[in-house]
């Protein structure tokens, strides 16, 4: 039956299969389609619009495994009205899903290269699918290096997973925090300080950055100092999103719409925009 509602603006109903508290303000939802619908295949870096009944909708990156998209996994931080309501969902609760939308990390393009992932804070969530995908095709890549910076040790996301990745012989994981009590045995200092020491071949590297804009600008600068061409650096952007399909205008940044041209951009395409204020 033809309805007057517009197709891509209508959510699919999903059920919360599992809620995992990650840190004091972040959580992971595992979702299953509520009525047996297909889960759309997604590419690492894409996002869904998640709807909480009566509260509204918010764009959340997909942080599951693209090679095995079931269940649908989203990690997010409770910072706004919708995400705070989302944080209260329990197993069996329902949620609306639209997507996946947006551009993807250049995982294929990176084949043959060393891959350097630089994540800041919740920015690790949109990069996790890249790790899954590369580990599933590990032989196609050179080194796999994750540089992860966050606020304090208690803000570290996916802690167990980080430990298991670190114990692998085919992946290097460096974690640093901005501040800490002396109980933390790990590294203290901003994530940019990890870049000069990481062992990758700058000429044969694809770097993917996700975090706050200031962090991404400084990370790109450090990568440039190491000799990584800016055309090999990719960054994921964040702006207000209402429709997710390029029609509402909210996520416009200069000449691009982040929901349809992004969120993942080659850094040299957005470098100048990132340097403009209030763009």
């Amino acid at each position: 039956m033809k309805t007057t509602v517009a197709g891509p603006m209508v959510p699919t109903m999903a059920r919360v299969n599992r809620v995992r508290k990650e840190t004091h303000d972040t959580f992971t939802l595992e979702l299953h389609p509520a009525y047996g619908q297909e889960i759309h295949h997604f590419a690492a870096g894409q996002f869904n619009m998640l709807y909480v009944f009566g509260f509204g909708e918010v764009a959340i990156s997909i942080s599951g495994d693209p090679t095995n998209p079931k269940p649908l996994i989203h990690t997010t931080r409770a910072v706004g009205n919708v995400t705070k309501a989302m944080a209260k969902l329990k197993t069996g609760d329902m949620i609306g899903v639209r997507g996946p939308f947006g551009s993807a990390w250049p995982v294929k393009h990176a084949e043959g290269d060393d891959v350097v992932l630089v994540a800041g804070g919740i920015g690790l969530a949109p990069l996790r699918p890249v790790i899954y995908e590369i580990l599933a095709n590990r032989r196609k890549y050179g080194k796999l290096i994750l540089l992860y910076g966050t606020r304090t040790p208690s803000d570290i996301l996916y802690r167990k997973e980080l430990e298991s990745w670190r114990s692998r012989l085919d992946m290097e994981v460096y974690v640093t925090v901005d501040r800490s009590s002396v109980n933390w045995q790990g590294n203290v200092g901003v994530v940019t300080t990890l870049i000069p020491k990481a062992g990758f071949d700058p000429q044969q590297t694809t770097a993917m950055i996700c975090g706050p804009e200031i962090m991404m600008r400084y990370v790109a600068l450090e990568l440039q100092k190491r000799g990584v061409p800016m055309s090999s650096v990719f960054a994921s952007m964040e702006r207000n999103m209402k429709c997710g399909i390029g029609l509402c205008g909210h996520c416009q940044m200069g000449p691009t719409f982040i929901c349809k041209d992004g969120p993942v951009y080659p850094y040299d395409k957005i470098r100048e925009l990132l340097l403009k204020r209030e763009i």
Binding site: M1, T4, V5, A6, M9, V10, G92, G96
Partner: peptide, 18 residues
């Protein structure tokens, strides 16, 4: 755009007459 109803924890779209 659309309406939805929540009934005993079950959320579903309400499809109005076009």
């Amino acid at each position: 755009l659309w309406k939805a109803k929540m009934d005993n924890g079950e959320m579903s779209l309400v499809v109005d007459e076009p």
